[in-house]
């Protein structure tokens, strides 16, 4: 089976929060729960970049390691899912997760945290695939319908990539090469300014 991954391209993300809205809408998540969020670093400074963050579906998931009731499991696709029938809402997963993926519906004094909710890579949960119960607990199961997570599918700038890790990394590698080449090209242009010659230096990877 394919090993699926998310990848967010910081050079393309424009912080439109479309992925966040799409996710909320598609999975019908309650108020206060955001399975995906966009984080902006150096907001308003030079070098500002944004990234869309959700569960990264780690190979060695910290949430699964620390869960006191062992409610996490990894699918054949490498998606980390959890069983809400077992979850007790203790919040340990949120303390271990580096990405802040686990979400809890309630807050306030003496908050009984309620069952944890997180990104499922639009792959539903342990309930019967496509059942109403699955949708109610875990949201859409788009993967079973042959679709990719909606956040990535509807990303306007194609910054957020989701799917088979090999395909995602191929796409990203291609982008990196192109960008490197354009960097090279700009460097060559600088060079030309210095040197004032060299007609052949187009800087393109392929002719």
């Amino acid at each position: 089976m394919a090993n699926v991954k998310f990848y967010c391209d910081s050079e393309r993300c424009i912080e439109c929060n479309g992925c966040v809205t799409a996710c909320k809408n598609e999975n019908d998540v309650p108020w206060g729960v955001n399975r995906r969020r966009v984080v902006t670093v150096k907001d308003g400074e030079p070098g500002e970049r944004s990234l869309s963050v959700a569960c990264m579906h780690c190979s060695d998931a910290p949430c699964a390691a620390v869960c006191p009731v062992d409610c996490f499991y990894t699918t054949d696709n490498g998606i980390v899912l959890h069983d809400k029938d077992i979850c007790i809402g203790c919040g340990y997963c949120s303390y271990a997760c580096p990405f802040g993926a686990p979400q809890f519906p309630e807050s306030g004094a003496f908050s009984s945290k309620g069952k944890m909710d997180k990104c499922t890579f639009c792959a539903g949960g342990p309930e019967e695939t496509g059942s109403a119960e699955e949708y109610q607990k875990y949201g859409a199961n788009r993967l079973a319908e042959g679709k990719l997570p909606l956040c990535a599918e509807m990303c306007a700038t194609k910054a957020l990539l989701a799917g088979d890790a090999n395909v995602v990394s191929d796409i990203y590698r291609q982008r990196v090469i192109n960008r490197s080449m354009s960097t090279l090209a700009s460097n060559v242009r600088i060079q030309k300014d210095f040197l004032g010659s060299s007609p052949d230096l187009t800087g393109k990877a392929t002719k």
């Binding site: 929060n17 955001n34 969020r37 984080v39 907001d43 963050v53 949120s94 580096p98």
Partner: peptide, 21 residues
């Protein structure tokens, strides 16, 4: 380095929380 997010919840502004590990 400062990071912000439109999502207002605990830890939403933090990119990667290495303390978790």
């Amino acid at each position: 380095m400062s990071s912000t997010s439109q999502i207002k919840s605990l830890g939403a502004n933090t990119f990667i929380n290495v303390k978790g590990q």
